[in-house]
Design a protein around this nucleic acid. Sequence first.
RNA 1: GCCGCGGUGGCGGAAUUGGUAGACGCGACGGACUUAAAAUCCGUUGGUGGUAACAUCAUGAGGGUUCGAUUCCCUCCCGCGGCACCA
Length: 826
Amino acid sequence: MPPIYNHKEIEAKWRKRWQEEKIYRPDLDQPGRKFYNLMMFPYPSAEGLHVGNMYAFAHADAYGRFQRLRGYNVFEPIGLDGFGIHSENYAIKIKEHIKDVSVRTEKHFYEQLRTIGNGYDWSRTVETYKPAYYRWTQWLFLKMHERGLAYRKAASVNWCPSCKTVLSDEQVISGACERCGALTDKRQMEQWFWRITAYADRLLKNLDALDWTEEVKTIQRNWIGRSEGTLVKFSIFNPSSSLGTSFQFSNNNKFSLSNAQKLDELEVFTTRPDTLFGCTYLVVSPEHPLLKAGAAAIENLSAVEEYVAVSKRKTEAERTDASKKKTGVRLAGLAAVNPVNGEPLPIFAADYVLAGYGTGAIMAVPAHDERDYAFARQYDLPMRLVVKSASQAAGQADCFTGEGVNIDSGFLDGLNTRAAIKKMNSWLAEKGLGKVEVNYKLRDWCVSRQRYWGPPIPMVNCGQCGWVPVPESQLPILLPAMDDFLPDGSGKGPLNKIAKFVNTVCPVCGGPAARETDVSDPFVDSSWYFLRYLCTDYTDRALDKERLKKWMPVDMYIGGKEHSVLHLLYSRFVTMVMHELGYAPEPEPYRRFRAHGLLIKDGAKISKSKGNIVNPDEYIAEYGADAVRLYLLFLGEMRLGGDWRDDGMNGMHRFVKRVYRLLDQADPSASDRAANDRILSRTIKGVADDLESLKFNTAIAKLMILVNHFEKNGLAVDQLRIFSLLLSPFAPFLAEEIWSQTGTTSSIFQARWPEYDPALIKDDIINLVVQINGKLRATLAVSAEIGETEAKEAALQSERVKKWLADREIVKTIFVPGKLLNIVVK
RNA sequence: GCCGCGGUGGCGGAAUUGGUAGACGCGACGGACUUAAAAUCCGUUGGUGGUAACAUCAUGAGGGUUCGAUUCCCUCCCGCGGCACCA
């Protein structure tokens, strides 16, 4: 028997055998007890996978292998998210053509993914940059368009000056581009959008029932940002007296509306209609239509226009910096009327009000909103307190944003905030001045990109017919080859430079037309890949309904939480639409989702920019895939991430060698069968429990304890065989090798997880903890069934206990059966 | 600022519903084997005091509840992540 574990030889042998015997290729038409085990497919933004990718994949695969042993028919696919800015930026950086780079990275990524020993079904890979895939990504676009969910509009969109393309709101992380980290800006452009906001309520509501990492659900909830409020209509007048352009009010902050002429109506959105009595002015955003509609009446138009121009010139970051001084300009010549008390209200334009949320206009209540308060202080505007804190009568702050009781509020006086909101809403509704509305922070998904490396958007612009979808039969629209694929920042995609591509005929009228030259967001590619995995054998359709019915939803999805509001939100939206179209059997794609934490090294996330990259290939070559897997799984709880230390690998290498050596030690005559069976039963249960709750680290610790025990006490061959089953989710090659060397012929992954004997789990003799006043003073080996009286007797017999009790009076004793006895003394 | 997750030996990390804090591993130290090294094996390893038995302190800080708190409550501090003028 070879004493040395030759990982290279053994891994190659099993990799080949698994491939030949197709043990990871379930028959998708005969799902049986199916288990769809999904992990986030990688995107090549470097030459190869880094150890952080391996971290996620090793966990997901160990879980999948466990389900396999549990008797599930596991489908575990993999692919490459190779289209997109991430891959393209890498090619640009190394000054090569993306087409060449993608050929190379595909080869390397797949080689690496094969070496780590995951149970992938290699017959069903998807690569998003191949026509066989992106043909259907384009089909998805057409379906969205057909349902009215893909549309084009001019809007203020995010622009990355470095990537030279627009981005969706989700791809701007704290004001910076998700891909390159450059600060983004806003540009007014016409773009393609997907109407994810139409699903905002469902995306929010369904979260409650999903078995997902709670943290990710919270992030999604906050991103969707539902808020219930009221739309209130204010009448706009042109007051007779000229008010000047100063912010000062004359005559005790009052001005007259006599002879005023009603000009318009202004609608605002508020979540606190109960504070309407405290409203002392209105504010519109600099983009608000009132500025144009009311221009004739605005007396200080040039000052207003100047303010708007200044606002426009500000960067997004400057405009939305909440800590900066608030600015604004009074719309002289215009005034509104507070519908509850008929008081005239001045109107301002200020860029602290966002154009894109609510109606782009607000009612300002400086006494009950911090932003209004700051603005009112800045411009010396009146404030009126109308809500009093219910708890503290005196000492109220100038600005109170909490809930309380209404005062000086006419018909709302004495009501608490909730009741006041209700009453105000019905009052406004009665008068036709307001209605309850729900607003979401979520905006529609901007999906067009002015880049090369993506699926061309299948739309054609005809002079006669306008925007027309490309007929399904003409798909795919192949991405044409081009040497200079770099984005130029013109606001049009590089494809725009290829006349042959652009010029086409209108599918409707046959006249000359121009193709859309933007490509779609890479997140569109990944929004449906898990559906395509199941249908790669269908070349005539994107998705097969029967197939999806058999396998969707995904049973377990493990991935990073950085995708909380990106991929995980987009793919839920797309699946909802696919469900409505009858493709997906359920509106939600992932039954369970668990986020893993980050892999850290030297106190920082492993990344190229930090210079702490760990190349997994070297470690796999030196120590073997199993040792690397075990090490990654042992680092800590998956949810919390791990801390990579180079020297930690030694320990796992040692463990692998020790496990292999058990083959030499297996000898029934030398072993205490009963003791081994007891610890085996416990380990079977413990490891299964840990795996189910994704605590891979403690599962491995239990295996180590078992190995320590075997080394000391010897073991029988059948016990070693059971041990190999327990080890197999973590170290598949090593486990398979031991399995085969203990007289089995079929793969360990066709075997079943071992049963344990419940009778062996229980202890007959326990260590009863004896405390005196809560401090541990002795432990007694007693029967597990011992009762309080006996336990007390036994404890009082103990010399150690006696010493501590001396002649102190026992006040009481606390007995926890099977665990502890606490004697309380004076 | 708001929301979420964390803070435990030299290090990574364990601790069912509150019940022996530090499992398991790394590293370190001592020893065995070896001409030597690697590998392997054995032992020790939270701090302080003590030859030892043992005592005592200790889970970010400070309070509290409890017979008993890493675990529950309150007030803070620090790290990471999300949102951030969303009315």
